[in-house]
Design a protein around this nucleic acid. Sequence first.
DNA 1: CGAATAGTGTCTGTTAGACATTATCGA
DNA 2: TCGATAATGTCTAACAGACACTATTCG
Lengths: 229, 229
Amino acid sequence: MRRREGDPIICTVDVVLLTLRDDSLCVLLLKRDREPFAGALALPGGYVRPDEDQDAAAAASRVLREKTGLVSPYLEQLATFSGPARDPRGWSVSVVYFALVPSSMLQADPPGVELLPVARLPRLPFDHGEIVREAVARLRAKSQYSSLPVYLCPERFTLPQLQAVYEAVLGEPINKVSFRRKMDELGMLEPIPGELEVGRAHRPAQLYRLRPEYRHALSMVDRGINARG
Amino acid sequence: MRRREGDPIICTVDVVLLTLRDDSLCVLLLKRDREPFAGALALPGGYVRPDEDQDAAAAASRVLREKTGLVSPYLEQLATFSGPARDPRGWSVSVVYFALVPSSMLQADPPGVELLPVARLPRLPFDHGEIVREAVARLRAKSQYSSLPVYLCPERFTLPQLQAVYEAVLGEPINKVSFRRKMDELGMLEPIPGELEVGRAHRPAQLYRLRPEYRHALSMVDRGINARG
DNA sequence: CGAATAGTGTCTGTTAGACATTATCGA
DNA sequence: TCGATAATGTCTAACAGACACTATTCG
């Protein structure tokens, strides 16, 4: 299985799908059904198909759909990983995307799908461990100053729920008053008229949703969601 | 020259080298000496060579060195561009890196090398126009909160020089006092003992250099170099 | 009514930016 | 001495975060 001169470069895509499960950030892994690393848990990935895919993003979207049935509302290019050693089949290039989905999209996991907390991952095949670390770092960095974590929420959510999501992602508490001020500044949320979260033994919370124009665009602030001195 | 089924994916790297010339941000372009687009100005780029390159970053570094003789002190992966139409030779994947160098490194341009201001670029072949726009956007975004622009400075520089570089990159004036406070907070600069910029008809400015530990690492602040309300 | 959490008003310490002042060179 | 710019001190307005207070539901 070693590379010989003249072998073509292996061209693949991989997807790091992140979601929140029980307040902890989890990554979607699949049990590999073929070599190399058959039986091991790894990121969903596959070959780019030039006859089928319009670009690498389309390939990533297709691979995710074929292997998990999921269509992610958010898919961003993370980075490209390459080299002779990361895949035992030979010199490879993998364009990696990261996806964010609300946990409600993962109620019925397809067979072979696992959600593992990123805080305590087993050793992963290929360079998938490093890839997941980079994806989590990117999510944390962007969450400091953007609305990215909204994609981890269901369509309708309350501000306390959204704040809990930010806190789970960033791993630190956020000041309630500042958080609400920032969300207000970002201007991407709208209250759903008359809709309140009911059934809890306290004052009901207003339900919000993303304004349509922010459905597929991020909103940024200058100084961070949780600015510190 | 059209793609046929079964053709391998074309795997290349391109480099966006940015520098400051006369206070304006410029990109390095080369006159292409072969088809496609022979004679046109384009980003330095070339095929990944699996037998030679340890990864795509090494390929980018090699391509830049072979085509311009330059070794950039800063080389960061920008993004990967792919699809059937961006290269007339067929379905291609290009891993793009961006480099920052001080203008002093570009005194004697090799033949065929051009430095053009990014503000008024001609139409570029492939998708190189879009690639340059993304590189400039990345530089501007990172300059808001990091020490990235110091790579555009020579080894020894004064704080007013560095501020002028930030202002040229960001395209807006910066408050002098705030700028110096931020540079102090970043803690990445050290005054060169006893070295002052001489020969100007005013009080001489202290010369600074990057602390060794920041030679190849960025320094970040929470709230931005030029935080605004 | 009490427990619990949502949502808001207010105060305070910190920070960024404006402005003024001093310092140090060449001409 | 003057012009020019470096470098720094000080004041103020804006902002983040702490705290307290009110609002509204269920049991």
